[in-house]
Design a protein around this nucleic acid. Structure first.
Lengths: 343, 343
DNA sequence: TGTTAGCACTCGTTCTCGTCGAGTGCTAAC
DNA sequence: GTTAGCACTCGACGAGAACGAGTGCTAACA
């Protein structure tokens, strides 16, 4: 059986209502609220049909209906109205973006905060993955009498400090040697062997113990995996939804949001284009099966890629979330273009 | 009236019991559990005295007693037994510290995680404040065809990227000029005027628009306040305490823990030595008045200072928390000494 | 044939009320 | 000074009643 126009309207009305109230929706409420000119009895018949078709669920005999996962899915695919984001919110967003971002990669973090501001749901954003470009330069700077700072520049900057005594001149000579042998290769390609050679070249003018320390530290820093950074914003907003009135559920969700490993998996999955919703059981993680995620993958011109995800109850305001992500993506794209113009 | 020995023992027994159960403690429980050789009736009399003296509170007539803030305070000051931390926990801690820390400042973050591991409460740790040392070196590196990375080394490393086109040679010449005029002064002393002079010096070999961009970015980066970083670990552990069974309370606490501004204030207050407890109403923030904080200030040899705070219910296991912080402080001190030996 | 009024029925929510029991304070005896 | 005993208090718990929102079904209507 296909959904006729009336059924669609009724389903939409039910879902819209339920999104707002989190209470099962009765036939009377729909017949009163909507201008369909239908009595509650008729609505009831239609609702029974919709339930049979799998779009609605009746929690118990004497309650109204709530949408099933399939109901939400149909809503998201076909029924949802476009949401208009207020001009002031847009202005605020633009303001936020322009004023605070000097470094493109940093912008990503703000994007997460902005998304949770706009949508009022929790957001998870993964920072761009390290794209593993070659070492451009290595610097060695004596910071204090017994501290030397190592700086390794690729597309991003790594640094580490070592507690050894080294003169400014020593630093410079060491830096020269390091650059000669390491500049141009990729961080993870640095081998112990290469460092041993450097050691041979430098031990003439640096104490061996100090040199060991420095090279150890360099090796550690250079080979340390760039952990995909994950930022979670507005996590405790989940506590404001009746869906999480049960403390145990809330706890489960919050510890999920604390588990970087799981969030990384989340960020790594489904790298398709555009904005996508995962509703209830469509999610792989057990704990998310009562929630919905809406996510958007992004790519920076530098090659970095990541994902912005909004997490909320299944009855989330999908249209608003979609519109927000869309807006953010557009605004950021504009900004990126603006940045690139300097080239 | 002063507390005699028996009253002290009873008070201690009550608090110990309450810390474990979170239930009002009755006279019978104490008379059974403790080997005081006293009947419940005697205990009752003593409890009535203790209540009159302000150390205990009776939630309602037919309930047992719970400690008042003053009761906890007395307990912490005078009654608390030393807590012995298991050898395996100590070993684990040493392991964690040694394996993961290559940079001293980073260690601080781990310390927070370790503290919450050890105590099972939420911890808040503030990273060492920027001590505003002079600029040691500035570096300009072309990372890609249209991206230049600025690196400013003080005691820590700041970096920013600018989207301009600049040759390797151009970078070097610019770096030379920058170092000549800016090395040795403190970041916040960099003025627009100084940058204007640099602009004059460099505009011969760099396009003015690019130069403007670079210098703007430099100025922003150099003058940007080093935000005191705050790390919160194990925030959702509060949900496991019956004190926060009420979702509203939990929500309030969690959003407090999300509020960096408030946490900074917390970290900035009370910079005395040693380990200190703030019990219930002793806390300034409204929201903390049903909780207790135990905090320890630390100073690194580099001059950085910060604070490690454990947050839990008033009936927290004070002795365990004190012992844990003590242990952490000792172990870190050892490590610091070890680092400094390289000098 | 589709729509609707009416009605019996279901079932979760809320409230009341009685019971239970943990714990108390007081008194009197040891 | 300590303790056994006892009446009393009061929150927790559970059963049961009242309520009401919402349903499905039937029959009447356009």
């Amino acid at each position: 059986m296909d959904l006729n126009d009336r059924k669609k309207k009724i389903l939409q009305a039910i879902i819209d209502e339920y999104i707002g109230t989190a209470e099962p929706v009765g036939s009377r409420a729909i017949s009163k609220k909507e201008n369909l000119g239908l009595s509650s009895a008729t609505i009831r018949n239609e609702m029974a049909d919709l339930e049979e078709m799998g779009y609605l669920i009746q929690p118990h005999t004497s309650a109204g209906r709530i949408p099933s996962d399939e109901g939400y899915r149909f809503y998201v695919n076909s029924l949802m109205q476009d949401y208009k984001i207020g001009m002031d919110a847009v202005a605020q967003l633009q303001n936020m973006l322009e004023s605070r971002v000097s470094l493109l990669e940093k912008l990503i973090r703000y994007a997460g905060a902005i998304a949770s501001n706009l949508t009022e749901y929790t957001t998870v954003i993964s920072a761009p993955k390290d794209d593993d470009s070659e070492i451009k330069k290595i610097d060695v700077v004596a910071v204090e009498s017994h501290t030397v700072m190592l700086i390794i520049v690729t597309r991003r900057v790594r640094s580490a400090s070592v507690n050894v005594n080294l003169s400014g001149e020593g630093c410079e000579r060491l830096a020269q040697i390091l650059n000669k042998s390491l500049a141009g290769i990729k961080p993870h390609e640095v081998t112990r062997g290469a460092l041993d050679k450097i050691k041979d070249g430098a031990k003439g003018f640096i104490k061996e113990s100090a040199l060991d320390k420095i090279l150890d530290c360099l090796y550690d820093t250079v080979t340390a995996d760039a952990e995909t950074e994950i930022y979670v914003t507005n996590a405790d907003s989940i506590l404001s939804y009746p869906e999480f009135a049960d403390v145990e559920k809330a706890r489960g969700m919050l510890s999920f949001l604390d588990d970087k490993e799981k969030l990384k998996k989340l960020a790594a999955a489904d790298t398709g284009e555009g904005i996508n919703a995962k509703i209830g059981k469509e999610n792989d993680f057990e704990i998310l099966q009562d929630s919905s995620l809406v996510s958007m993958n992004y790519t920076l011109p530098s090659g970095g890629a990541g994902k912005l995800t909004v997490i909320g109850p299944k009855r989330m305001n999908y249209s608003k979330v979609f519109a927000s992500l869309d807006l953010i993506s557009n605004e950021i794209e504009k900004l990126v273009k603006y940045y690139m113009n300097g080239s």
